[in-house]
């Protein structure tokens, strides 16, 4: 099943400049894996060393943060939109 995936600015150069791509999968994890398979340059921004999501990235399924759904196991229905969004943070310390 193919869904639309919105990419953050930093990943677009690794995906031929596209802001939105199609990826295959039935869960958030499968879709993220397919994004990495299609565009290997995105791996270091998307994946943590343990195979989970990178901690500086948030993934939204139709505006719902997948961390509050089922994480990488969250089922993704046909026609859904997945958005990968950078975690914008920092501070004076």
């Amino acid at each position: 099943m193919s869904v639309s995936v919105r990419l953050p600015t930093i990943l677009r150069p690794q995906a031929g400049g596209l802001s939105e791509i199609s990826a295959e999968g039935g869960t958030v994890g499968e879709i993220v894996d397919d994004v990495v398979r299609q565009f290997p340059g995105t791996a270091s921004h998307l994946k943590a060393p343990d195979g989970g999501l990178h901690r500086f990235v948030n993934v939204y399924l139709n505006d719902e943060d997948v961390r509050y759904l089922g994480g990488l196991e969250t089922p993704v229905p046909a026609g859904a939109q997945l958005s990968i969004v950078p975690a914008v943070a920092g501070g004076g310390g």
């Binding site: 919105r6 948030n58 939204y60 505006d63 943060d65 958005s83 969004v85 950078p86 975690a87 914008v88 943070a89 920092g90 501070g91 004076g92 310390g93």
Partner: peptide, 15 residues
């Protein structure tokens, strides 16, 4: 973060 030392922006605000 509601912090005097760090900040974080809600990803949905960014999106």
């Amino acid at each position: 973060d509601r912090s005097a030392r760090t900040y974080a922006i809600d990803g949905l605000d960014l999106l």
